[in-house]
């Protein structure tokens, strides 16, 4: 980020609160330094502790993620009653497995079939179903995906290596309010005998966004 790390000619600033080897030539636009500055201000004021920040980071890096959504999908593939409940009221069906909360207050499950392929985007920011998928991947937040997914979805899908038949309607869900969408992918052929746990391993994050098919996650 900063190109000035090796310059040591800015003497008066030696007393910077966080000396990480680059406190002399501070690049005010370096976001990592802004993070440190804000964190140190809040911690010194007694408004938050670094432990609490660590815990929040840990939670979203390790506890919440696409494995949650994969369990939902695998259960829907193996249990027709659950599938029906999921398509009727996804919020309740997902809560049956213990998932819910921020950025998943109301969930809608959209089912891929031979006739319809669903794809989820947020063109205005980066809305995403946190309780079932965790935080979004970088590409989901990119301007390229946000601009193009609604207009040229087949081209975008091709970039993910996903071909959808011409006869299949592509339905793009732009999550512009507080409702969050989970794609229920089609079960890969030849996997009928597998149990829920094995099936869940075939369900990648990208299949639940709709940019890939289940079983072919990269």
């Amino acid at each position: 980020m900063s190109s000035d790390h090796d310059h040591h000619d800015h003497g008066p600033h030696d007393h910077g609160p966080h000396d990480h080897g680059h406190s002399h030539a501070v690049d005010k636009n370096d976001p990592s330094l802004r993070v440190e500055a804000i964190e140190s201000l809040l911690v010194e004021a007694g408004l938050v502790t670094s432990e609490k920040i660590d815990a929040l980071v840990d939670r979203y890096q390790h506890d919440i993620g696409p494995m949650n959504g994969a369990r939902v999908v695998a259960k829907a593939w193996t249990d027709p009653d659950y599938r029906a409940r999921l398509l009727d009221d996804a919020t309740a069906a997902i809560a049956e497995l213990g998932y819910g909360g921020a950025q998943g207050e109301k969930m809608v499950a959209v089912e891929n079939t031979d006739d319809v392929h669903n794809l989820v985007v947020c063109t205005l920011c980066s809305c995403y179903p946190w309780p079932v998928l965790g935080l979004p991947p970088s590409w989901y937040k990119s301007h390229e995906y946000r601009a193009r997914a609604v207009r040229e979805p087949r081209a975008v899908l091709k970039e993910f290596g996903t071909d959808v038949a011409d006869e299949t309607e592509i339905k793009i869900w732009d999550s512009s309010a507080e409702i969050r969408y989970l794609v229920l992918p089609q079960q890969p052929p030849g996997t009928d005998g597998l149990g829920e746990e094995e099936l869940a391993r075939l369900v990648g994050r990208d299949a639940m966004i709709g940019v890939r098919l289940a079983g072919v996650e990269s």
Partner: peptide
């Protein structure tokens, strides 16, 4: 407000990290 705007290149599908 980016939806449908033209002029954007390929999606960096390899950038899958959060």
């Amino acid at each position: 407000d980016l939806g449908g705007r033209s002029g954007y290149g390929p999606v960096r599908t390899d950038e899958g990290e959060i």
